[in-house]
């Protein structure tokens, strides 16, 4: 299962949108950072823009730019989101909890479902193809990516894979009891175009795998590399989140210092990998261990 990345777009707390190489503007985040938003008006109609929450704006714009940069219309769309459209979810909770009359405004409810993101993309692009939404906590991007790779394996020619999540203030209340992380909650969307091998000018996703009861990261990585016939000495860069063995890869970079905390940020690591100046015959490994026991591995060539 492999595919080339022909286009990749990120919007989040880094100044990454429209950049040739996102490493050049990369800054570790402070505690009070905000989304660096592009001019959404260029990509989203004024009527939609008024209704759309941040996660929809980010995702739709990133997806739209991916389609603009991809000659073929997408014949599959696969989106991962860990917590979905949180802002509208909270807004609708507030709507019905405080409601007094018999009528409720439906807008927040309509936009609260997880697949509002992928659905809005299909409508904006006039796209009638396969349209999927995966949600698997910290492995939401990886499960969407696995679906995208599966689509390519099945013969699809142009697949949009993306991940999007948004922060709301309420989330910080969950620390440290429910969520343990040193990073502040943030928002981010990364979308990429996948095509079959042979079309690429950028990089290729070689494989992606998820592990739900991981007790030995080192062993899981060794098996993953072996399955892909990749020698561990050829891993030039490891992009990681959470605790990982320090022995793997020539260089290790913690991507959460750049993304902040959202549970589909491995997609941004994928963008970092795509823009990285990699030596010949070398590989990048993304190790997502944001949550203990859950492990996502993505191999980039």
């Amino acid at each position: 299962m492999s595919a080339v990345i022909t286009s990749i777009v990120s919007i989040g707390h880094q100044d990454s949108f429209g950049k040739e190489n996102i490493w050049e503007t990369l800054q570790p985040l402070g505690t009070q950072s905000e989304v660096v938003a592009p001019d959404y008006k260029t990509y989203i109609s004024p009527a939609s823009l008024r209704r759309f929450s941040p996660v929809l704006r980010m995702a739709l714009t990133a997806a739209q730019v991916c389609q603009n940069e991809t000659v073929l219309p997408f014949d599959a769309i696969s989106v991962g989101t860990s917590l979905g459209c949180l802002k509208d979810t909270e807004r609708f909770l507030q709507t019905f909890i405080t409601a007094t009359g018999d009528t409720l405004s439906p807008t927040a409810f309509i936009q609260s479902t997880h697949n509002t993101i992928a659905g809005a993309i299909s409508m904006a692009l006039g796209n009638h193809s396969y349209n999927m939404t995966h949600t698997q906590n910290s492995l939401s991007f990886e499960t969407a990516l696995i679906d995208g790779l599966l689509c390519i394996q099945e013969g699809k020619k142009s697949v949009l894979v993306g991940a999007a999540d948004e922060a709301i203030e309420f989330l910080e209340l969950l620390k440290p009891q429910v969520i343990q992380s040193a990073f502040p909650f943030t928002s981010g969307a990364t979308f990429l175009s996948l095509q079959p091998e042979g079309n690429g000018t950028k990089k290729a996703v070689m494989d992606c795998s998820v592990h739900f009861n991981n007790t030995n990261t080192e062993e899981a990585i060794a098996t993953f590399l072996k399955n892909n016939q990749v020698d561990s000495d050829t891993i030039e860069l490891v992009l990681f989140a959470g605790e990982i063995p320090r022995t793997i890869g020539a260089k290790q970079v913690n991507y959460e210092q750049y993304t902040g905390l959202y549970y589909s940020s491995a997609a941004f690591a994928c963008h970092l990998a795509t823009d990285y100046a990699l030596s010949k015959e070398k590989y990048i490994l993304i190790v997502n261990h944001q949550v203990n026991g859950k492990l996502g591995l993505t191999l980039i060539r």
């Binding site: 997880h114 995966h134 949600t135």
Partner: peptide, 16 residues
């Protein structure tokens, strides 16, 4: 998955 003792692939689809 936990209830059934399955520790392999777990995936949730949310398309309403």
């Amino acid at each position: 998955a936990l209830e059934l003792g399955i520790d392999g692939f777990v995936n949730t689809i949310s398309t309403a």
